[in-house]
């Protein structure tokens, strides 16, 4: 790493280089516009279908690109009666509490594992690493959750998935790149481990905290299967599980129609797409708020002080 004296002033962009030429900018623009279009068009189809009426969906045979007679019937059908609204609160609560607790455990563990040479460093690291490769089966997990009295408790949705080895390893890698001089200096100044973590390491790691927090929030938000197994009381079901009951297996006109014979009318395509929108919007809104933690040059301020 080199740092040389400033010799001649140049007009710079953020990276300190002159702005790129037209050709480069044009190429970037094309790539990004194409990438966005590939994403936006299918999403447009999802949203449009959720707003379309059955007649138009029937004519299109699935998805419509633009609703001719837009209406909110599908959203009304989902939100009527308060079951979905209640589940929304459950999910927000579980996601918030779970993410905060999980982030705390992950950060503490990642920090504790970020010092090679410390006591029991390698055994502890291996203990965490191994969980990546060997996962318990659903029945032993159920028996455990049941035996410690967590059935029908929101904690059953949080505690078993509190620590994820992958995330610990990522966070640890970020922590380890914080210059040693910083923490050593603080130690000389008399700071303890917790102080070093909270006053130096974490403030310098906002970006990775935001990333891991997002990973965990999304995982909590999307999880439904633990609730299937651990929560009998439907009033405590999270949003994803409640919405799952709207999406019946619609493999109709199929070979085994008999099994479903007598089943109720399956949810229409518009309801299924409205479900997608309802389940997606809250979590998708999180990201833009986290983005400011990705701003460049956080570390430099700290190092150069």
């Amino acid at each position: 790493m080199t740092a040389l004296a400033n010799r001649k002033p140049v007009r710079r962009n953020v990276n300190g280089t002159p702005p790129p030429g037209i050709a480069v900018r044009g190429a970037k623009g094309v790539v990004l516009i194409l990438a966005c279009a590939f994403v936006v068009i299918p999403f447009l189809a999802v949203v449009s279908t959720s707003l379309a009426d059955q007649q138009q969906i029937t004519e299109a045979g699935g998805y419509v690109l633009w609703p001719e007679r837009p209406n909110l019937d599908a959203y009304r059908a989902i939100l009527a009666g308060g079951v979905v609204t209640r589940a929304l609160f459950v999910s927000v609560g579980v996601t918030l509490v779970g993410t905060l607790l999980s982030l705390a455990c992950t950060a503490l563990l990642a920090y504790a594992l970020s010092r090679p040479g410390s006591f029991a460093h390698k055994p502890l690291l291996m203990t965490v690493l191994f969980t990546l490769f060997f996962t318990p089966g659903i029945i032993p997990m159920y028996l455990l959750v049941r035996s410690i009295g967590l059935l029908d408790s929101y904690w059953s949705l949080i505690l078993p998935v509190l620590v994820n080895a992958f995330q610990v390893l990522i966070m640890r890698a970020f922590f380890m790149e914080i210059p040693r001089e910083l923490t050593d200096a603080a130690r000389i100044d008399g700071a303890g481990e917790l102080q070093i973590l909270t006053r130096i390491v974490l403030p310098l790691s906002k970006a990775v905290l935001a990333v891991i927090g997002l990973f965990q929030a999304v995982a909590f938000w999307n999880a439904f299967f633990n609730a299937v197994l651990y929560i009998n009381d439907t009033a405590k079901w999270p949003l994803q599980l409640v919405l799952r009951t709207y999406v019946v297996d619609n493999t109709s006109l199929g070979v085994d129609g008999t099994e479903l014979a007598g089943a109720a009318m399956p949810a229409s395509q518009s309801i299924q797409m409205a479900i997608l929108v309802v389940s997606l919007v809250p979590i998708a809104l999180v990201y833009p708020f986290l983005q400011r933690h990705f701003a460049k040059g956080i570390l430099i301020g700290a190092v150069k002080g």
Partner: peptide, 21 residues
Amino acid sequence: IIFLAALSRVDTELYEASAVD
């Protein structure tokens, strides 16, 4: 996302220095 987080840590002075070079 994860790479953007990593990139956010790049010391901008390094860019400046190399640009100067």
